[in-house]
Design a protein around this nucleic acid. Structure first.
Lengths: 135, 135
DNA sequence: CAATACTGTAATAAAATTAGTTACAATTTA
DNA sequence: TAAATTGTAACTAATTTTATTACAGTATTG
């Protein structure tokens, strides 16, 4: 798994804590300590999911698009998630092997089961809850 | 996340289904369709965790070290797991930012919480259960 | 005891993925 | 019109993952 989830959480926490004004990608990048273009790229994704509103032009920037109470950590997970929770092997198993032939289907099933449980757990926590951990 | 979990599951399923004889890394690699040296490397890890027994020399190979009923999918997860369930960002957040200063601690807490729940779920399934999905 | 067939492990190389950088058009404000 | 900002693409660098090669060590078997 790459660093997109923690980055997304960082961005959304900042915006959720800053209701009154717009934050620029430069400011956000300064808090995270990464490149502003990367921030804009991830925000582009989060905006497509309806979590963030943006305003172009001078004085523009970003704000949270809806109350943190209405964004669960599962929603964020779904917005940045990897294809499979426990990783994907890149091999193509041997179709002439009894196990190899069936393993992908069975792993797939297992993953769906796990993913469902994981999302259920994440769904019990909101961005607001997470934000409230900050003093 | 990389492909180690599915690879480990594949190896262990093969061995659990083959109680009577030893399987060579070559045979296992043939089923997975990856390099035998990689198989031996992952097995080296799984052996250190007590899941696999090995025999060197001619006619040697691998076998399951204990009943599949005694190996949970959580045990396997713990043997190959990544540092964090939802990924790690490589940045060092700005310590002069109120959010940046606290985010790592809060993410850490969240991850421990999630990991615990995930392991509990995985702990309800055994290698035997997984093996039984194969007809 | 010599040949063979394995494991165990390390070193290296190749491939794939992720993160970072640069650039610039488009937009808005003043 | 100048300045500040987003949006996006193209490219580069770094890191991680996977693959390959090699070979010493260990049993087995004729």
């Amino acid at each position: 798994m790459n660093g997109r989830y923690p980055i997304a959480l960082h961005i959304l926490t900042l915006l959720n804590k800053t209701q009154s004004e717009l934050l620029s990608s430069d400011y956000i990048a300064g808090s995270i300590n990464i490149n502003p273009a990367l921030v804009r790229k991830e925000i582009s994704n989060l905006r497509n999911h309806g979590f963030i509103a943006s305003k172009e032009g001078k004085g523009g920037g970003y704000s949270i698009a809806k109350p943190g109470r209405q964004i669960t950590l599962a929603d964020i997970y779904n917005a940045v998630k990897e294809p499979h929770i426990l990783g994907v092997a890149k091999n193509t198993p041997n179709p002439d092997c009894a196990i190899g032939k069936q393993i992908n289907k069975n792993i797939e099933e297992l993953y769906i089961d796990l993913d469902t449980a994981f999302i259920a757990k994440l769904g019990t926590m909101t961005l607001e809850d997470f934000s409230n951990k900050f003093v």
